[in-house]
């Protein structure tokens, strides 16, 4: 078989795999609970909004043991929350104002390719403006990061600091500040996922005190 043919066949197989898997999954769910899909059809009321990395190794619902209908999800390169990004801001708005989620989790992960790429001394074209936000996080924490001599641990710390900074960016929004004032939720969390053990690490962002600090400058409560 010639190479293009083999490639074509391979592409078809990897494509069909998804549909086969999906049919298998749907049958399993129906066998377990015949009304499973009917109930989902009625609507969603997730308790959580997850803002995570696009990285294929961190399917949010799978690593938290949640099923369909339980977690509203936005995933982008390096789990960034940029104030001028209409995409993430629409997700936050919808999740907070319409779905009234209780928790917002910003979750990064060690070994993040986006964070590493951002610190690479190289022109990455289209990715430059997006990854620039990570360099800005580095600049905010330059003194601390510069004391870490080895690359690996320094990247890992930057991953943590980036998550904290993005969680702050969520707290800076009017949607969060107004909902929290009215309802006492949502609460914003900063977590990191580690591939070495598959566990989530809570960076212990103190939401109340962080909100108070942020509102000194970014105060939009009404």
């Amino acid at each position: 078989m010639s190479d293009p043919e083999r490639v074509q066949k391979y592409l078809q197989q990897s494509h069909d795999k998804i549909f086969e898997s999906n049919r298998k999954w749907a049958e399993e769910q129906k066998a377990k609970n015949p009304e499973f899909f009917e109930k989902l059809s009625a609507g969603q009321s997730p308790e959580y909004l997850w803002i995570g990395c696009s990285d294929s190794r961190i399917p949010a619902e799978a690593i938290t043991g949640l099923g369909p209908g339980e977690m509203f999800i936005h995933r982008n390169i390096a789990n960034l929350v940029c104030n001028t990004d209409l995409n993430v801001m629409s997700v936050v708005n919808y999740a907070v104002r319409h779905l009234k989620v209780k928790h917002i989790v910003v979750c990064g992960h060690y070994g993040c390719g986006g964070v590493k790429a951002a610190m690479t001394p190289q022109d990455l074209g289209l990715l430059n403006p997006w990854l620039r936000n990570i360099r800005d996080v580095y600049r905010l924490h330059e003194d601390e990061l510069d004391t870490i001599k080895e690359d690996g641990p320094r990247y890992d710390r930057l991953v943590e600091l980036n998550v904290m900074e993005q969680a702050r960016n969520v707290i800076k929004t009017a949607a969060i500040q107004q909902a929290y004032k009215r309802d006492g939720f949502p609460i914003v969390h900063a977590w990191v996922f580690g591939f070495n053990d598959g566990l989530l690490k809570d960076l212990k962002l103190d939401f109340e005190s962080e909100l108070a600090k942020i509102q000194k400058i970014y105060n939009l409560p009404s």
Binding site: S21, A26, L40, R57, P59, E61, G67, P68, E70
Partner: peptide, 23 residues
């Protein structure tokens, strides 16, 4: 972003299979 369409779960895939953007 809808909570009812978790890609890895509904495609019966594993972590590492699908790169994801959801909005």
């Amino acid at each position: 972003a809808d909570s009812r369409v978790p890609e890895t779960t509904v495609c019966n895939c594993r972590p590492g299979d699908i790169f994801v953007h959801r909005n």
